[in-house]
Nucleic acid binder design. Structure first.
Lengths: 191, 191
DNA sequence: ACCTGAACACCGTTCAAGT
DNA sequence: ACCTGAACACCGTTCAAGT
C-alpha cells in the first residue's frame, strides 16, 4: 500500500523547518531532523534545495523578514505617523513570533530579503513629504531600531530566567516609546 | 627540548578565537581549529572553559559587546548629546571591527553582557536631566538603534558584492543621521 | 594541575543506485 | 523526476591515561 503523504515542496520544507525552530530552537534544526519531520530521508531535501542548508536558511529569512509596509494608502495622508507606528508593531510581532531566526536575519545571509521592506517604508516617508535622501535615511533608521530593539527584547526576556524578576521591564511600552522617539526625531528633519 | 609556548589562558583562548572569526568567519570557528591555532589539542581547551564552546561564545560576546559610556564627566553637562554621539560612533566601530560576532550578540546568548553598557548609558541620560523612566527607555532606544542599524550595515555592505554598486550607500552619514534623529526625538521627551 | 589519544554520537553533503 | 542507502570528512564532547 502506498504511503499517502503529501509531496515534498520547497514551501513545505521551509514551513516545517520554521516549526522546528519555533519549537526547539535554531540549534536543533538539522537536515536529518528536518527529514524525519517530513517523513523522508534527509537527502531527499537536496532535490528541492540544491544549495542545501544554506538555501534553507536563506528561505527562512525571506519567509520571516519580508513584511512590506502598505504604500497603497492615499498619498500625502496626514496619518503617516500612525501607519509607521502600526507597521513597526506588526514587524516586531512577526520577529518575536519567530525569534529563533533573528540571528539569521542579522547575519549577512540573504541580504536581498530586507530590500523590499526598506523600499516600501521609504515610499511611505516620501508620500508624507520627505525628500528622497531623508526618506531613505529615515527608513533605515526606523527599521534599524525595530530590529535592534527587538533583539534586545528577546535577550532581555531570557535574562529574567537567570537573574530573577529583579526589574520587570514593560517591553511593549518601551518599544512604543522608542518608536515615538524615532518618529518625533524624524519630524524635526521634515521641511 | 621543551616547547617554549606561552601557557594556555582563558584570555588567550578567547583572543585567538576572535582572531579566527575576524579572519575566516564565525562558521569556521571550531574547537579543533582553535586548538590548532593555540598549538594544543582541542581537548585542552576544556580545562580552561569547562562549559566548552558555549562558554567560549559567551566570552566572545562579553569581550566585544561591553563598552560602557564614561559617566565620570561632570554632571548636568550641557554636552550630553555630543557624548552620546561619540559613544554611538565608538560602539558601532567596535561592532564593525568584529562583525562576525554580531549574530552572537543578537542571540539570547550571555544576556548579562549588555547590562553594564545599558546602565552606564542610562546614567548619562540621568545626569542630563532625564527622569529615571525616561532615561531607562532612552538608553534602550539608542542602544537598540545602534545594534540594529549596524547589523543592517554589515548585511548591506555584503550585498553590494552580489548586486553590483547599484546604489552606493554612505553608511557613515546614514548612521550619524539616524543617531541625530534619535537624539532629536529624545530631546522632545525632556522637560 | 594540565594536557593527550582514542572513542562516541552526531553533523552536512556526495554519489551511485533504485523506482 | 524523485527518493534511498551507504559512505566521507568533519563536528563537540567524554573519559581514561599520561606527565
Amino acid at each position: 500500500m502506498s504511503q499517502n503523504r503529501e509531496p515534498l515542496t520547497r514551501d513545505r520544507i521551509i514551513e516545517t523547518a520554521l516549526h522546528i525552530i519555533d519549537g526547539q530552537g535554531l540549534g536543533r534544526l538539522t537536515m536529518r531532523r528536518l527529514g524525519d519531520a517530513l517523513e523522508v530521508e534527509a537527502m531527499a531535501i537536496y532535490h528541492h534545495l540544491p544549495r542545501g542548508k544554506e538555501e534553507l536558511l536563506d528561505g527562512l529569512v525571506a519567509h520571516v523578514a519580508v513584511l512590506p509596509a502598505d504604500t497603497a494608502a492615499r498619498a500625502g495622508a496626514a496619518a503617516w505617523r500612525d501607519r509607521l507606528r502600526e507597521w513597526a508593531a506588526a514587524y516586531r510581532a512577526r520577529l518575536l513570533e519567530h525569534a529563533g531566526v533573528l540571528p539569521l536575519v542579522v547575519t549577512r545571509r540573504n541580504p536581498a530579503a530586507l530590500t523590499g521592506t526598506t523600499e516600501s517604508l521609504r515610499e511611505v516617508l516620501r508620500l508624507a513629504g520627505f525628500l528622497d535622501g531623508a526618506a531613505a535615511s529615515g527608513a533605515h533608521t526606523l527599521i534599524g531600531y525595530v530590529i535592534g530593539h527587538t533583539a534586545l527584547e528577546v535577550r532581555g526576556r531570557e535574562a529574567r530566567r537567570a537573574a530573577g524578576p529583579e526589574q520587570e521591564v514593560d517591553w511593549d511600552g518601551r518599544f512604543n516609546a522608542g518608536v515615538d522617539v524615532v518618529l518625533a526625531g524624524l519630524v524635526t528633519t521634515l521641511t
